[in-house]
Amino acid sequence: MTAQILNGLIVGSMYALVAIGFTLVLGVLDRLNFAHTEVFMFGAFAGLVAIDAGGIWWLALPFVFVVGGLFGMAVEFISFRRFEGDARITAALSSLAVGLVLIDLTQKVWGTEPVGMTIPGYVTTAGFELFGMRVVYVQLLILGVTLALMASLHLLVSRTRMGRNIRAVADSPAAASLLGIDVRRVTQDVFFVSSALAGVAGLLLAFRTGFANTDVGLTFGLKAIAIMAIGGMGDLRGAVVGGLLIGVLEALTFQFGVGKLGELVVWVTMILVLFVRPEGLFGGGVHVKDVRA
């Protein structure tokens, strides 16, 4: 039982990492970036490139952070920059197409079958006992990296000049620009950070499963979008809490022998939460975004 909860928290922390990036773009820029799930998917393949290049395996993490971030900036340029205001839906559809193209290109290069990822056995299989529960180092790695990234993001947004500018743009792009803030630059920053987190989450998932898989964007990644809705659209805290909650819920349904329900849990929870509380768990509370002009 506790082992299942730990497992749930680990899966949930990866959900949260993907959801945070998605919700950040929405909360700050009022944009839905549907290529996000595929940047998450591609993170594992970018990691393969880094590891196969013969480097130290964990260097794949910063490499994927940067590659993911650059992908995000590319998506912003391709799908979002030309569309302002009312054309938001068009932009979202364009990003959806970019994501699907990314799946296809990845499959052209690596094939449709999952590709094995080799990282040292002392990470993937070795571990220790804790309160009668077996903890594998890769689980600690995933928790450690996701928590560190979430804490860093929190500090970035709340304490730095870049974060202040991000919140200013979330508040009102027009008012921010009159105060000398380059809204386009902030937009790029936000897409970079958002997608960098997704890329790292994708690599962490591959560390855990041992495979890079072109399906994960539409399975695992899409659930992160549901989690954003559950947590409250555009709310960072909501993404974290929602991710952990769904991770644990899924693990528990599995534990209680209703494993077949596993995939359904997140979608049913989303429907129920939104039915009862359309603004999501945290929506309407502390928020990165206010009513915009």
Partner: peptide
């Protein structure tokens, strides 16, 4: 054009940094 979700001090900081 004040930034309502930011603090008074943050509003001033941004105006100062321009």
């Amino acid at each position: 054009g004040t930034l309502g979700t930011l603090t008074v001090e943050e509003n001033l900081r941004i105006a100062y940094d321009v």
